[in-house]
């Protein structure tokens, strides 16, 4: 690592985050399970194939249109498990609370966790609470860990994308990032843009019923669709070609991006998944996704190619092509 201090960008999910993991954590923790670098670890315990993951949530503000930090904390971990095709079962919840947080707010957050857990069919079975001095945290931080069961015959990993495969997404991109950012940037919406945060294990189950032959599932959270597809391209050593006009983006999200100088491909999602499936299964898969409440706007947005391994290329609306790189640093509102 070139930096002497940790910068915000080390946590943005982009290139610096990857370097931090690769250069600092991996060499120290070094083991074959971690080295897979999927969103969850697959482990065998007493002959049972388990998926295990953890995630921390520090979103500011903790309440935003369409959700709150509690809902995110459950969805995030449930989705990390679901992206391995696992059925999530149990979660833990750790709270770091800033002195002075109104109890009402905590209650709202906790109730929202329960509601989301019920929807996802998981139980929150253990927890921990720490309170820190005012100023040592921003209201509330939550960590959740989760375990789930991986069904027979399911083999999903970021490294399984193959040339010819199709890339699917389950709906509009960028809603979450824009919903959160709008609050901070004084933007309002005629029709509210709500965070898309949602537990996706139900959708994944419906997809696995169509076929267990899903190669990759990933939720494009921090760093957005662009960063996640870059990860897949590099893990699978393939190229990916996207069709700009096929990518579903709400006009309002596009407008907010124009105002703030953002690219929607890099804006965070909390209820989206990218699926890479064999071409012959793509049509059926798309139909099944569209039938699910969290997949009504699903679309096939691109395909996997043998060319330019490790790179994602976008065919632009006007017929040009450009490389879509990983997010570098955080996206900041800009005027230039």
């Amino acid at each position: 690592m070139a930096e002497k201090k940790i910068l915000l960008a080390h946590g943005s999910g982009g290139r610096l985050s990857h370097q931090l993991v690769k250069d600092l954590f991996l060499p120290v923790f070094d083991n074959d399970v971690l080295n897979q670098l999927d969103d969850r670890a697959e482990i065998y315990a007493a002959g049972v194939r388990l998926a295990f993951t953890t995630d921390s949530f520090v979103v500011s503000p903790p309440f935003f249109p369409g959700g709150d930090i509690g809902k995110l904390a459950v969805c995030g971990t449930v989705n990390d498990l679901a992206m391995g095709g696992a059925e999530p079962l149990y979660l833990s919840a750790g709270f770091i609370i800033e002195e002075g947080l109104p109890v009402d707010q905590l209650k709202t957050i906790v109730e929202s966790m329960r509601k989301t857990a019920d929807e996802a069919g998981v139980k929150i079975v253990c927890g921990d609470t720490k309170v820190v001095e005012r100023g040592s945290a921003d209201r509330i931080f939550i960590n959740t860990s989760g375990i789930g069961l991986v069904p027979e015959g399911v083999n999903i990993s970021g490294s399984f994308a193959r040339p010819g495969d199709k890339v699917l997404i389950n709906g509009y991109i960028g809603d979450h990032g824009i919903a959160v950012m709008a609050e901070r940037q004084g933007l309002s919406f005629r029709e509210e843009i709500a965070s898309d945060s949602a537990p996706l294990n139900g959708l994944v189950k419906a997809m696995l019923e169509v076929s267990r032959d899903i190669h990759v599932l990933r939720d494009p959270t921090r760093g957005g669709v662009a960063t996640t597809l870059n990860e897949i391209a590099s893990q699978s050593n393939v190229g990916i070609v996207l069709q700009e006009e096929a990518i579903p983006v709400r006009e309002q999200v596009l407008a907010a991006c124009e105002i703030l100088g953002f690219d929607p491909l890099y804006v965070a999602n909390e209820g989206k998944l990218l699926a890479v499936v064999p071409a012959e299964k793509a049509g059926l898969m798309l139909e099944a996704m569209k039938k699910h409440p969290y997949g009504a706007e699903s679309a096939i947005i691109g395909e996997v190619v043998a060319d330019h391994p490790g790179r994602v290329v976008l065919s632009t609306g006007i017929g040009g092509r450009r490389i879509v790189d990983m997010l570098v640093g955080e996206q900041l509102p800009r005027i230039c």
């Binding site: 933007l187 309002s188 919406f189 005629r190 029709e191 006009e251 407008a255 907010a256 124009e258 105002i259």
Partner: peptide, 22 residues
């Protein structure tokens, strides 16, 4: 970017771009 003025209060206007206001 082009935005439509939907209200004016003194020297501050509320503008709209595709449903986004500021």
């Amino acid at each position: 970017i082009p935005a439509k003025i939907i209200s004016i209060d003194d020297n501050i206007a509320e503008v709209e771009i595709a449903g986004v206001t500021r």
